[in-house]
Nucleic acid binder design. Structure first.
Lengths: 182, 182
DNA sequence: TATGTTATCATACACTTTGTTCTATATTTA
DNA sequence: TAAATATAGAACAAAGTGTATGATAACATA
């Protein structure tokens, strides 16, 4: 990739991130991003079709780091250890998210929040099934998956936006305690 | 209230509802609402400041019906009956929501979904505490409340948008089973 | 019924934002 | 070095927003 493209892309990402700390996604204009990034108008549109494309690209960027080294490949998944592995995987994800908390606070603000959460859930829907497939609830399987996925993503939102004082381990413990019937 | 105002308000609400069935909130323009409602431009702005105000007004309208006759006033709240009352209250809310499912499907579509969900959660946050105050989890109280509220609102979204075949009783049962540790 | 009040309509308007197109310039790659 | 490519900057059309105006119609009330 051309160094110029890399620099431009980074400048736009950084500018977007800076703006997200100050204001809602919907109230940020392309012009502001351009000014903050110190980049030409046509240059921005050479990289991203719309403001939404930029948001999506940033989400994908974050999730690539969070879900790249997949713990589910590393550890055993006997039924007996399922709870323990699940807890480990969650903590792992939470640590990666904590590294991005500066960006996440902006992404989770009001309007862009829904978009971020949608992508987040997509990843979780791929990750969670192996951990909950052994559970026997009397509910439709896709309801159960939705419940686990939504509860966790909302836990993350609760943590990042309002309760940063807790550690990833604590957050994982809160979640598991509420969601796992013993 | 002037009959003309009532008629205009209803026309705008109906138009908005119709448009929400066809397209996302963010892609609906004020001009489209005006055309569909067959109402003058300045008339629209005499009623609502922005498109978002209209959305908010519609949400409030729905929730007024859903949460108006508050079951929590009617029934006993001994600890022993808490579970039963909670189930009854949930079913009651779900029936009201089912009556509005035509509007809700539109409101829950992508972009406006977040806004609807926010208001919905505000109401639930007022309704739920009495039902969960007796539960003793080792998690922060506001995390627990957030967990119950989010799980239920996401249950509603799951139901309205994708699984309308279930009855309110079934949905309430799914939720309670997943959320209540026995 | 007569009268003052108020909501509506239609139009026009200034303003903001968007996304495209163009050319000259600078940077990169081979 | 030469060809290819990314950028800056400006200009542009198009779409949407919210406001202001005066004429008309519907309303409430005495």
């Amino acid at each position: 990739m051309d160094r110029r493209q890399q620099k431009t892309r980074k400048a736009i990402f950084d500018a977007f991130s800076t703006l997200l700390e100050r204001k809602n996604f919907n109230n940020i204009t392309v012009q502001e991003i351009i000014d903050e990034a110190n980049v030409g108008r046509s240059t921005f549109y050479a990289h991203f079709e719309t403001k939404e494309s930029l948001l999506k690209a940033m989400c994908i960027d974050i999730f690539q780091h969070v879900f790249s080294d997949d713990l589910s490949q590393e550890s055993s998944h006997d039924f007996s250890h399922a709870g323990h592995d699940f807890h480990k995987e969650l903590t792992h994800i939470l640590y990666h998210l904590q590294d991005n908390r500066k960006n996440l606070k902006g992404l989770l603000s009001c309007d862009s929040g829904e978009i971020f959460m949608e992508y987040f859930k997509e990843y979780l829907e791929q990750t969670f099934p192996i951990y909950i497939k052994e559970l026997h609830y009397d509910v439709p399987p896709d309801y159960l998956l939705n419940h686990f996925v939504c509860s966790f993503s909302e836990t993350v939102r609760w943590w990042i936006t309002k309760h940063e004082q807790y550690t990833p381990e604590q957050i994982a413990a809160f979640y598991v305690q509420c969601v796992m019937i013993k």
